[in-house]
Design a protein around this nucleic acid. Structure first.
Lengths: 123, 123
DNA sequence: CTAACTGCAAAGCCTTTGCATACCA
DNA sequence: TGGTATGCAAAGGCTTTGCAGTTAG
């Protein structure tokens, strides 16, 4: 759990808050380095890991096998992965009915819906 | 593309055809080794990779970051990951409406719905 | 001041690859 | 027999960890 506020942590938080969707560790390092030069990948991994354990961040793993991280402060949403630019965007889909569609005896705690296709810029 | 039918490939295919859901490379090796003793992990990776490239297999990457593989011969379906036993099961959910819920300009080619929770055995 | 944090480089996992051998066809 | 497929071990990529130096409070 994070105990001190450092330049590096603030930079990472800021980047994640400004993101349109989940970002990979690499992307976070690139963007946060502009705010906190010299930021190491190791620190990015340490901070996102702490955030995930503390529940402030969630990790997303889609079919392209890249792990991405996003702030949890926002509303429940889903993801769209553009197969051209590999960028992930947040989207909203009605999903109330999902929990009722499982076999007898199963219980659902959460779900993930991901669409794959082409984003507006790449189409 | 696969050119020869070998003991190892037949074992892997057989395991994937019998599976209730997608399996990890490890799981495939364990189960297929019972049929073809000495089967190496490297071969499993080579065979599933060929299958994926040939389109007969699909790869699945859920939030637990484990890559799993499954035969594509079956109907369109979705996945349920049990958070207790880490097993993945195939499920069916109506999903016709999904493609219409994306922002202006986006096009959807495919989707993935995953439920997380507890399976009948673990509940 | 001092315990938490960071950067670096080394270590760890999972997956891929190079090479000599085994084995389908 | 000839070339594909396999097993082993080494190499690769992403992520984690150990350690010594740095810094927040």
């Amino acid at each position: 759990m994070s105990k001190r506020s450092t330049r590096q942590k603030r930079a990472i938080e800021q980047v994640l808050l400004a993101a349109r969707g989940p970002l990979s560790a690499q992307q976070i390092q690139e963007k946060a380095s502009e705010i906190s030069p010299g930021l190491s990948l190791a620190t990015v991994y340490r901070v996102v890991r702490e955030g995930a354990e503390a529940g402030t961040l969630s990790t997303v793993c889609l079919d392209d096998k890249v792990t991405r991280y996003e702030d949890r402060h926002r509303h429940h949403h889903h993801h769209f992965l553009c197969e051209d630019c590999d960028e992930v965007f947040d989207i909203t889909i009605p999903c109330e009915m999902l929990a009722h569609r499982v076999p007898e005896g199963y219980s659902v705690t959460r779900h993930e819906i991901t669409l794959y296709g082409h984003c507006a810029e790449c189409a």
